[in-house]
Nucleic acid binder design. Structure first.
Lengths: 198, 198
DNA sequence: GGGCAAACGGGGCGCTCGTTCCGTTTACTT
DNA sequence: AAGTAAACGGAACGAGCGCCCCGTTTGCCC
């Protein structure tokens, strides 16, 4: 819930002015509405609709986020950080072997994206022109995933000729396949995972 | 090149009136321009752009195709028929075994879609509200693919717990993965294909 | 409680794009 | 060669949507 912070910049040091109470409240309402709306319909949802659901005017949204894209990224950055945290905690867990940890995350990642249209879209997008905050979050996720992959490869659980970039592409592919196949959730992902085993 | 036919309806029997010469010419020009434009940019290309490339006015496009969607489908139906023909000819070829035939088509299908943004989009789309002609073409493709799959499964080359629908989903997934991964074309598809083997 | 800057909100602008309309041109007929 | 209906083309319409402007409201400080 990092994005529920009151101030968009310089949270610790008291900057020029503290935010007004209603502004803080509205920022949170917009963010919550955006989360729900983007998750349900992806970037396609009109900004006016988000404003309406948040109970504010469109102008208010634009005071807090310079552009629709920026609002989208604010939502996405949160999700990416959560996923990065998941990867890192699996990495730290000594109870499961490398292969299990890797595939566990692989499945969790795709399952999560399935329920969040925006995340899927964000991962599919080329990812150009990202704000620094988003870029950092994406980097942390990639880093964690990369270490999970390496460990699993060293353990002989995953074929050695796959890079993180290719893995990312396969995740996108699995999400696309999963969305297309109605019955038996996770089956497409399982097939693709089988193709990844050594 | 079935769509280069002069008359949209009743080609054999002389209907109400034969088409005027310039109309025939323009229809073909529109179809060619649409083919190129849709292949390059998918459905996103504006209709005015297609008209411009074809050297006609937008109104002319609409006399031949009631809607942009209909024009799109006219292009897609051709592609689907060509693919169905490919599947059928592989089916008829006794020189290759069932597994080879299946995977050969699998790779060909994805490679083809890679070069044609519109085909990829069409396969990804839910496919609701299709014109009868398109529905028929899609059915023929699915039928051929289905027989290739069955034969390969019976031969033990492909895992038995996959249906045509799921296969379709995996094709879409492979296309998505392939588009996302820059280097070494076909690698993502090969990994997914490995997941499909028995 | 009064003053003031910050925040609000929604009407409106500008752009894109699918579709239609209609005055003009062009191919066929006799 | 003249008449006619089919076909043309591009200006114009309308809908959707991102974004901005500005008159009004509201929280904050003295």
């Amino acid at each position: 819930m990092t994005s529920h912070d009151a101030s968009p910049a310089a949270p610790g040091a008291p900057g020029p002015r503290p935010m007004r109470a209603d502004a803080v409240r509205n920022r949170a309402k917009v963010l919550d509405a955006a989360r729900a709306a983007f998750a349900a319909e992806g970037l396609a949802v009109p900004l006016d609709e988000i404003a309406r659901r948040a109970g504010v005017g469109a102008g208010t949204v634009y005071r807090h986020f310079p552009t629709k894209e920026a609002l989208f990224e604010a939502v996405i950055a949160d999700r990416l950080l959560a996923l990065a945290g998941d990867a890192e905690s699996r990495l730290a867990d000594d109870g499961v072997d490398a292969g299990e940890a890797f595939f566990g995350f692989f499945f969790a990642l795709i399952e999560d994206a399935e329920a969040k249209a925006d995340l899927a879209e964000a991962l599919m997008a080329a990812g150009v022109h990202l704000q620094p905050e988003t870029r950092h979050a994406a980097g942390r996720l990639t880093g964690g995933f990369s270490r999970l992959l390496e460990r699993a490869q060293r353990a002989g659980a995953v074929r050695g000729d796959v890079t993180v970039t290719e893995l990312h592409a396969l995740v996108v592919g699995a999400m696309a396949a999963e969305k297309r196949a109605a019955g038996e959730p996770g089956k497409m992902t399982r097939i693709i995972a089988d193709g990844l085993r050594a």
